[in-house]
């Protein structure tokens, strides 16, 4: 027997989507408040103040923080003891279509070549849903709306294995090239190793990680990025990146893939534990 009903699941996913669009996670709000507090550039300070005000209005009014309500990434964790008697992919798509109408979300999903808009934020391959299988009785869903402004500034390089010192250069150059376009202060996700596509997935995971501290290498990269002085919205300032996160995987002895995924300050994420 199914542990939860389809209706219950769909209703909760709609709520989760709305939450992700209207309430920024606490870790990100704190990081932005800290950035505002220590900012020495008055223009950047005005931009950070506007961001904090915007976050407050969105939460109070239950409106999307940003008009680019993104494309949708779902991460579902299911334990081996969980029995579900409905198609989770279909249920998520239904919830997304419904939230598109009710919140509303901006219809962002188009065919890549004809550019025809599906009008309901679903399409071939979207939303992007991944499943993690676990040993226990977990059933959890993460939702991440991803905007295009920051995603468009992401890059991937297949470096030579001897070029490990090039990693830092590639990360900093990517942020430099992006300038004010990805809506800084940004969070930089770096994926090192794996393969061409695994590096990209690692970088996305790294970008979406909670802001709960950086290791020495991440801190070194973050300091390097912030010496650029691009600042909030590219108008100059102390904080260009709130954090740099690095996720790694083993790779082929002849390869060194490096991917950099950029996340704007609207670091949207919501989580629901069903069981």
């Amino acid at each position: 027997m199914s542990i939860i009903s389809r209706d219950f699941f769909v209703t909760n996913i709609i709520e989760l989507i709305i939450q992700s669009e209207t309430i920024l996670p606490v870790d990100t709000v704190i990081a932005l408040e800290n950035a505002w507090q220590k900012e020495s550039n008055t223009i950047a300070k005005s931009q950070l103040a506007a961001i904090l005000k915007n976050i407050k209005i969105a939460r109070e009014k239950k409106y999307p923080l940003c008009q680019d309500t993104g494309i949708f990434i779902f991460n579902v964790t299911i334990g081996k003891n969980i029995v579900i008697n409905f198609n989770i992919n279909d249920a998520i798509c239904e919830a997304l279509r419904s939230a598109t109408e009710t919140l509303p979300l901006r219809p962002n999903v188009v065919h890549p070549l004809t550019r025809e808009n599906s009008l309901d934020n679903t399409g071939d391959g979207l939303p992007d849903i991944t499943f993690n299988l676990t040993e226990g009785s977990d059933f959890e869903v993460y939702v991440y709306p991803k905007g295009a402004g920051s995603e468009n500034m992401s890059r991937l390089a297949m470096l030579k294995p001897s070029q490990n010192r090039e990693i830092k250069r590639f990360v900093v150059e990517t942020v430099f090239t992006a300038g004010g376009m990805p809506c800084p202060p940004i969070i930089v996700g770096v994926g090192i190793g794996g393969s061409f596509d695994l590096a990209a997935r690692l970088s996305k995971k790294a970008a979406l990680r909670p802001l709960d501290g950086m290791n020495d290498f991440e801190q070194e990269l973050c300091d390097a990025v912030n010496t650029l002085g691009i600042g909030a919205m590219g108008l100059g300032g102390d904080t260009t990146a709130l954090a740099v996160h690095v996720n790694t995987a083993h790779c082929h002895t002849a390869s060194l893939p490096v991917a950099v995924n950029i996340q704007c300050w609207a670091n949207r994420r919501a989580y629901k534990k069903f069981i």
Partner: peptide, 10 residues
């Protein structure tokens, strides 16, 4: 004129 990116409800 630059308006703060992402500040859509503001």
């Amino acid at each position: 004129l630059a308006y703060t990116g992402g500040c859509a409800v503001l």
